[in-house]
Amino acid sequence: MSTDILATVAFDDQGYLQNPADWTPELAEALAAQEGIQLTEKHWQVIRFCRAKAAETGKSPTLRQISLGTGIPTKELFQLFPKGPAKRVARIAGLKKPEGCI
């Protein structure tokens, strides 16, 4: 089921959504499932923050910006989105690859 929705949209070679307009909450669920993540309300809190921040600045937020902005500690972000929260959230939230180093 989830694979169907992923087949309908285009991704770049690093797995980021090519056309931001293709993003839907269902797509996020499918992308997360693909990475082995079951989205909870806490995950959605992060996703919503990142999408709002990206809409405001034009850039995907860095990990530190996510932590400061959501109030969710670094440790928890790494539990929610293991192995690189900033990049993972950006992919699931249909955003561009984060550029900042911090």
Binding site: T62, R64, Q65, T74, K75, G100, I102
Partner: peptide
């Protein structure tokens, strides 16, 4: 550049594993 002070940075690194 939003780089945190050393003590905070090291804590972030530890929190990240």
């Amino acid at each position: 550049l939003e780089v945190p002070p050393i003590s905070e940075f090291l804590q972030m690194l530890q929190d990240a594993g």
